Simulated scan of single mutants.
Amino acid sequence: MASIHATALVDPAAELDSTVTVGPYAVIGPQVRIGAGTTVGPHCVIEGRTTIGRDNRFYQFSSIGAPSQDIWQDANHRGEVTELVIGDRNTVREFCTFNTGTHKERGVTSVGHDNWIMAYVHIAHDVQLGNHCVLANNATLAGHVHVGDWATIGGLSGVHQFVKIGAHAMIGFQGHVAQDVPPFVTVDGNPLAARAVNLTGLRRRGFSAERQAVIKQMYKLLYRSGLTLAQAQQAIGELKGTQPEADGDIDSMLSFLAAAERGIVR
C-alpha cells in the first residue's frame, strides 16, 4: 500500500505505486497515475488525466494537472482527451502550476526527466519541457512553448506562447522572451539580447574544447559577422567536418534555425 496520510483525499480510481508517499491534505483525482518512489507533499492537488513517473518530489501547495487557462478552451473544446505527462526524477518546489494540454496542438503537456523546477513556476497548456532543465522561481512558460534539454530559465522570466528555447540555452533574470532562443546561447536584458555562448553550462556537461570552439564560431556567425540569417545558416553548414565531434551540434543549430517561426533573438 502507498503511504497516504489520513487527511489526504485520494480517489479510489487513481493508480499509485505502492512506494508512493502522499502528504497531509493532498488531493489526487481519479485519472491520476503516479510511479514508484514519488512523493506528493502537503496540500498538493493533482487532477486531470495526469501521468507521473518515478522518483519525483512535489513540495507543498502545487497544482498539477488542472485544465488550461486558455480563454478559448471552453468555447472550442470538442471533448478531446487532453493530458499532462511528467517523467522521472523531477523536483517541483512550492506553488507550481502545471496545466494539461489542449486540442490546439497534440493535447499533451509534457515534462521530461531530471528537471529542477523552483517555486511559483507556471507550465501552461501544450508546453514541451525537455530533460535536465532548470526553471528558477517565478519562471512562466506560456502555452505551446518548447524547451530543449539542459536549458536554464532565470527567475521572474516570462516566455511568450509558441516560443522555442534551444538545448543548453540560458535565459537571464527577468527575461522577456518573445522570440526563439537558439541552442547554446545566453540571452538577457530588456529588450532581450544575445550576450554570449553558455560556456559555463557546456563545460559542466563535459563539452570538449573542440566542440566549444565550433559552438563559439556558430555564435559569431549568427551574431557578430554582420550576416543575414540565411547567410549565417549557410556559413554554419560549411563548418561541418572541421571538427567531426561537433557535427551533431551544428545539426542541432541548423535544425533549430530552420524551424524557428517567431524569428530568433538577435
Rank of each mutant, 00 (worst) to 15 (best):
H125V: 02
A151R: 02
F184T: 01
V27A: 11
P42T: 02
G143D: 11
D247S: 13
A124P: 02
D251N: 14
E15N: 04
V147K: 13
L135D: 04
A258S: 05
N76A: 11
E210L: 06
A230P: 00
E210D: 14
Y25T: 10
G226P: 02
N131P: 08
K220H: 14
V145Y: 02
P67L: 15
A139L: 13
V22F: 09
D247Y: 13
F61K: 10
Q243E: 04
G154S: 03
L257M: 10
S62T: 06
Q128T: 10
D74Q: 11
G101E: 05
E105C: 03
H103V: 07
E94Q: 07
H125T: 03
G241P: 06
I64Y: 10
R195A: 12
I117F: 12
R54V: 05
A8W: 13
G241R: 06
T38M: 08
N56G: 05
N90V: 01
E83G: 14
S110I: 07
T51Q: 15
A36F: 08
P12H: 04
A246W: 10
S68Q: 09
H77W: 13
R211H: 09
G35R: 01
Y219R: 02
R54K: 05
G158D: 10
H125Q: 06
H122D: 11
T21N: 06
S110Y: 02
V22I: 12
V187D: 14
R78S: 02
G154L: 02
L84M: 01
V187S: 15
V22G: 01
N99S: 07
A119W: 00
T7K: 00
T140C: 15
G65W: 05
K220E: 08
G101W: 02
A258D: 04
N198A: 04
D149W: 15
K220T: 12
V10M: 10
V27G: 04
H5E: 12
L192F: 11
T91G: 00
Q179D: 06
G155K: 09
A6V: 09
A259H: 11
K104M: 09
T50W: 01
L135V: 09
R57T: 07
S63M: 06
S225Y: 15
V177G: 06
Q174S: 05
D70C: 12
Q243P: 01
A2S: 05
V40S: 09
L229W: 11
Y219G: 07
A119C: 08
A235T: 01
G53Y: 03
E238N: 09
P191Q: 11
I153C: 01
S157N: 12
A8I: 10
S208H: 01
R204N: 02
Y223L: 09
I264E: 08
P244N: 15
M253T: 03
V108E: 14
R78V: 00
T51D: 13
A230H: 10
T51V: 11
A196S: 14
K216V: 05
A142R: 13
G154Q: 04
Q234D: 13
V20I: 07
I52F: 11
T38S: 10
T50D: 00
V10G: 00
V145D: 09
I123F: 09
